[in-house]
Design a binder for these strands. Structure first.
Lengths: 168, 168
DNA sequence: GTGCCTATCTATAAAAT
DNA sequence: TATTTTATAGATAGGCA
């Protein structure tokens, strides 16, 4: 049994005034604990009442945390568009900022790949051409000239293709 | 005074399971109470730890509620612009991807521009070369051969640059 | 920064008004 | 339907590891 004088291990929770916590380390701890508490409450609200929500938090050090159901961007998108979630889900167009970025990014990547291929293609041809010239001796000049015209024709065709692709 | 048999006025709070409240009227009451509780917690978090946050809630009936400090739109703008560090606490979806896509997308766009410039550069040179050949008559062949070697040298330099860039 | 602990403090489910 | 009451479940400040 505890004697009258025996100290408790903890003073337990104390009432605090809701005002800025001045001590920096305590402020950090309070932020961390209460943020997780807030997100838990948010989760419960969603589950219990079948709601959807997003929370975006900037910590005192301006670090970003967020919670969202079904996900943050879907909620923000609905908010920004001034539509409801229901309407948003039924739309066939872009459904969230995230997805939109994703789509644009994939497109950009594809374009990049195409450009790289074109470049590689052209550089290969140039390389082949250079090699041809490198190996050439005086008596091969006439034959080379024939090749030049042949190549020119092929290049013109290829270039035309490229220009067509560019103008898309 | 209360007699021994006198019933309490309330059974008090009971433990509830965190799952969708089926009874519509109870769900509505739960939503309303817990939403205000959530906003209160959010307010306390802001004051205590000097944080900023925004909460956007769609009720089960898709009605919009929000809370923001300093205000909702300021927080959303910061979020969308992705100007700060990011840690995702999301349980259902992943929203940090959005910012990441944005960054990768910008990068891809830059790369694309670079590739296009390179391509245009090379195609200009090829075009110039083709034009040269087009206009050529028999007596200009010797002069053309001189040009070929000059060009070859220049192209080799340029190509080397490109290969260097590619290998990054 | 996280996690545990305990003694409170606070939010809130259910009922009553 | 909103507010108040009751009694309890849950959150958390302060310590410590």
């Amino acid at each position: 049994m505890n004697t009258v004088n025996q100290r408790k291990k903890s003073m337990g929770r104390k009432k605090i005034e809701i005002k800025k916590v001045e001590k920096e380390t305590n402020k950090q701890v309070t932020f961390s604990k209460r943020r997780s508490g807030l997100f838990k409450k948010a989760c419960e609200l969603c589950v219990l009442s079948d709601a959807n929500l997003a929370i975006i938090v900037f910590s005192p050090a301006d670090k970003l945390f967020c919670y969202g159901r079904p996900n943050t961007d879907a909620i923000l998108n609905s908010y920004i568009k001034g539509t409801t979630l229901f309407e948003d889900q039924n739309s066939t167009g872009d459904s969230s900022i995230c997805e939109q970025y994703n789509r644009e990014y994939e497109e950009a990547l594809k374009m990049l790949e195409m450009e790289k291929k074109k470049l590689a293609d052209i550089e290969n041809r140039v390389g082949w051409w250079n090699d041809s010239i490198d190996d050439m001796s005086g008596e091969q000049l006439e034959q080379f000239m024939m090749s030049i015209f042949e190549l020119r024709t092929k290049l013109a065709e290829k270039e035309h293709e490229h220009l067509m692709m560019f103008s898309m």
